[in-house]
Design a protein around this nucleic acid. Structure first.
Length: 413
RNA sequence: GUGGACGUAGCUCAAUGGUAGAGCCCCGGCUUGUGAUGCCGGUGGUUGGGGGUUCGAGUCCCCUCGUCCACCCCA
């Protein structure tokens, strides 16, 4: 093992070829699906002013209070590595002067940073694919966003995912509910665990999804947000559910879904799996109608979600297919240069080619085998004289003498 | 941040406190124009790192780094 100085930082991992292939499958599925919903990619900074997240996510949240990589740079500015994507997207939306440009449907993919204790599926630098729709207010768009997320995950062929939805209310109805909940929790606080007792003051809604079983049983008759929605939130939530039904997107109601980030309201949802231990949330998001305004823009409804690329990649089937179309084997030093030109010709036809470097035939074939090349182009003195190539199909062992054009034809079909 | 498990060759793992090994992988050879099997040979380790106990530490003790698991929280 390498010494400390040669290792990557804790919780920050390298993307090696096998894993990156999986990442790319996830990203490609996202691009394909999002394009059918007319979403446009945005590329946003990894570094942002620390203040942006303090004001959007909330100062009291764990993310801001203890998980951010923030520091003072040489110009005495307090900057940080972004812990999530939404705040930066809103900042860019405002800074780009797009508040009167009509609905914006954005997606992005890139690294996020949180200084947490690492686990499987939870890294300090991790990748998210995020979506943010600005200027859309209705339940129709909510249903479409959820349907798009569903379509994206369906394209990845990940099974045993469950969509859970909830409504978090709005600034009109949530405070009232919060008071009712706190009153309820205070009355039964002796039966709740230690952390829940702390949560009553800090974030009472979090108590609802406590994992301690004794807490859950004590909370069986706890008041739930969905029963205390105002009329507008109620009809919005109904509209969402009707839209999901119409689109045949399967979901379950989960009144215990809460959000750690302050800016969410109304629709909240999560796609979860039970195959990743405690890190089962694979894609999650919700509506954040107040965020644009709170960051200095005009009142602008918006909804979005983020998917964890590493978590999704872990759920993908193994799908190892060699990407090498043909390996070029050169027999004899005198044909080396000629074999290089033939390899170049194959590449011009768009094929993926590995030149085995000449030398012992056995070595070169072993290399071709190891590269999982579908074909080997054998080039020796005879082939050079006749201007042909001996093409061997590595799966069947069949070998034919062909011209370069015929080789391209044979491999491409 | 809290609690727990674990770090030996590239990988998977052995080694009553007494010379660090095996399998797989990799490289080479088995008369040099044909790959997965077979046979022969080879490379490869400050046992994660640093201290301590001991005649002697992979093994026991302390510290540290890292991975994994749970909590916290979250994608």
């Amino acid at each position: 093992m390498a010494g400390k100085s040669l290792q990557s930082i804790r919780g920050i991992h390298d993307g090696l070829p096998d894993e990156v292939r999986r990442f790319q499958r996830v990203e490609q599925a996202a691009r394909n699906t999002f394009a059918t919903y007319a979403c446009s990619e945005v590329r946003l900074p990894v570094l942002e002013p620390t203040e942006l997240f303090v004001r959007s996510i909330g100062e009291e949240t764990d993310i801001v209070s203890k998980e951010m990589y923030s520091f003072i740079d040489q110009g005495n500015d307090n900057i940080c590595l972004r812990p999530e994507g939404t705040a930066g997207a809103v900042r860019a939306y405002l800074q780009g002067g797009l508040t009167r440009a009509g609905a914006q449907r954005w997606f992005y993919a890139g690294p996020m940073f949180r200084r947490e204790r690492p686990q499987k599926g939870r890294l300090r630098q991790f990748q998210q694919i995020g979506v943010e729709w600005f200027g859309v207010s209705g339940p129709v768009e909510d249903a479409e966003v959820l349907a798009m997320a569903h379509a994206f995950l369906t394209e990845l062929a990940i099974s045993d995912l469950r969509l859970e939805v909830n409504s978090l209310g709005c600034k009109a109805c949530r405070p009232t509910y919060r008071d009712i909940l706190v009153e309820y929790l205070e009355a039964g606080k002796e039966q709740l665990c230690e952390t829940c007792n702390e949560r009553i003051a800090k974030n009472p809604m979090r108590v609802l999804d406590c994992k301690v079983t004794s807490c859950q049983s004590a909370l069986s008759d706890a008041p739930e947000m969905v029963d205390h929605l105002c009329d507008l939130c109620e009809s919005h939530f109904d509209g969402l559910k009707q839209g999901l039904d119409a689109l045949a997107v399967p979901y379950v109601m989960n009144a215990r879904i809460v959000r750690g980030l302050d800016y969410y309201n109304r629709t909240a949802f999560e796609f979860v799996t039970d195959k990743l231990g405690a890190q089962g949330t694979v894609l999650a998001g919700g509506r954040y109608d107040g965020l644009v305004e709170s960051l200095g823009g005009p009142a602008t409804p918006a909804i979005g979600f983020a998917a964890g690329v590493e978590r999704l990649a872990m759920l993908l089937d193994d799908n190892e297919e060699g990407c090498v179309d043909v390996a070029v084997v050169a027999l004899g030093a005198e044909v080396l240069n000629y074999s290089l030109t033939q390899a170049a010709g194959l590449r011009e036809a768009g094929l993926s080619v590995v030149h085995c470097g000449g030398g012992a035939a056995k070595r070169q074939f072993r290399m071709a085998d190891r590269e999982s090349a579908r074909f080997v182009a054998v080039i020796g003195g005879d082939e050079m004289e006749s201007g042909k190539i001996a093409l061997k199909n590595m799966a069947s062992g069949e070998q034919n003498i062909l011209s370069l054009d015929e080789v391209v034809q044979a491999i491409s079909t």
